[in-house]
């Protein structure tokens, strides 16, 4: 067999994304999605957050978190549709939708972190 499958690479990225998403996303959504909007905690001032986001490590780390988490989500959702709804005849549409969506949002993330 000379054709190489892209599946092992996807599963590796899926695992890396799963770890990253589990480690960093809950606390960020807890703060920005729940605690600040509910007024449980005071949100950081704008200039502080801006300087935090402009730090090279935040830009790089932020992009890696986005990329890996999105690939993880795309891969897992693809298989959820595959197993859950058994819509195998739509496999190609689903693959394009899942990975295409992940790539599109990653490009958006790249534009945001490079500003």
């Amino acid at each position: 067999m000379t054709t190489r499958s892209v599946e092992p690479l996807l599963w590796t990225l899926f695992s890396a994304g799963g770890v990253v998403a589990a480690m960093v996303l809950p606390v960020l959504v807890l703060l920005f999605g729940v605690a600040f909007p509910l007024g449980l905690l005071t949100p950081p001032p704008h200039d502080y957050l801006l300087s935090l986001l402009r730090h090279p490590l935040t830009r790089f780390g932020g992009f890696v978190v986005c990329l890996l988490s999105l690939i993880h989500a795309a891969h897992r959702f693809r298989y959820t549709l595959y197993d859950g709804l058994q819509i195998k005849h739509l496999n190609e549409v689903i693959n394009v939708g899942c990975y295409g969506g992940a790539i599109a949002i990653s490009v958006w993330a790249l534009l945001i972190v490079s500003r």
Binding site: G17, A21, L25, L28, V29, F32, G33, G62, V65, C66, S69, L70, H72, A73, A74, H75, R76, F77, Y79, T80, D83, G84, G101, A102, I105, W108, A109, I112
Partner: peptide
């Protein structure tokens, strides 16, 4: 498995 959708939404929210 559906948690994947919410992982994607969390990224969109943070972006």
């Amino acid at each position: 498995e559906l948690s994947s959708l919410f992982v994607a939404w969390a990224i969109v929210l943070l972006l």
